[in-house]
Design a protein around this nucleic acid. Structure first.
Lengths: 111, 111
DNA sequence: CCATAGTAGTATATAATGTCAAGTGCTTGA
DNA sequence: TCAAGCACTTGACATTATATACTACTATGG
């Protein structure tokens, strides 16, 4: 299947970060802890099934921490762990690159 | 469908970079120009159909430049443009993060 | 001369993945 | 009482990626 170099940390990191929505989720959580629907709205466009799966994955990797505040009127909180917070450097690098090189390859018309 | 903030450069950059194989391709091309099969081997695991599609996309975005050196004994060369080279900062940020936070959650040893 | 391997891809069928729409159980507010 | 919010789950459907084989051509070796 994939014969990529999994002994290389960067290779594995890329594999992780290129999963759909992961970077959007991390970027959104960098602004603070959020509940499920709140996160869903701010990420924009990710459906609950995918979001739940991604959050599970990120939690398993120790990037996100899930806290259940109350069970009955459901209240959950997703926050970044220290590892997750450290991704701010990646997000900022992307942001800097975007500002400089991604002028506006705009999709033909603006809404 | 996606209600993400496309007026935000970072949002668009993330959308772009999270496409499967894109970061792997860029990272590989940072080590110098490569031919199609050569790139395919070094990226590891990406099949030709996907690779061709990604390269088309990256070329359309001005991140990669394709040069056909000879037609008959086919020889092509893919290289990063200035914009593409600038992504080294993103790749290095990922690399730094990976070294610090992605110890070795590698489950599968090898085949 | 013919098989093998290398170049850059394309074709097609199938597997994996993501999305849509709706639904669950429960509470609060009107 | 009824709509709306919370945090998800489920199942059908669509999109996307994959494996595998193949095109067309050259160059090398037996």
């Amino acid at each position: 299947m994939n014969e990529g170099d999994f002994t290389c940390p960067a290779y594995r990191a890329i594999d992780l970060l290129q999963e759909k929505w992961v970077l959007h989720i991390v970027r959104t959580l960098l602004t603070g802890p959020k509940g499920f629907n709140e996160l869903s709205r701010e990420v924009g466009g990710c459906n609950p099934a995918t979001l739940a799966q991604r959050l599970d994955h990120l939690e398993a990797l120790g990037i996100v921490k899930k806290t259940v505040q109350s069970v009955m009127p459901p209240k959950t909180s997703y926050r970044l762990t220290a590892s997750g917070q450290a991704l701010i450097e990646v997000v900022e690098a992307i942001d800097r690159w975007a500002r400089r090189h991604l002028k506006d390859p705009a999709p033909a018309r603006r809404t």
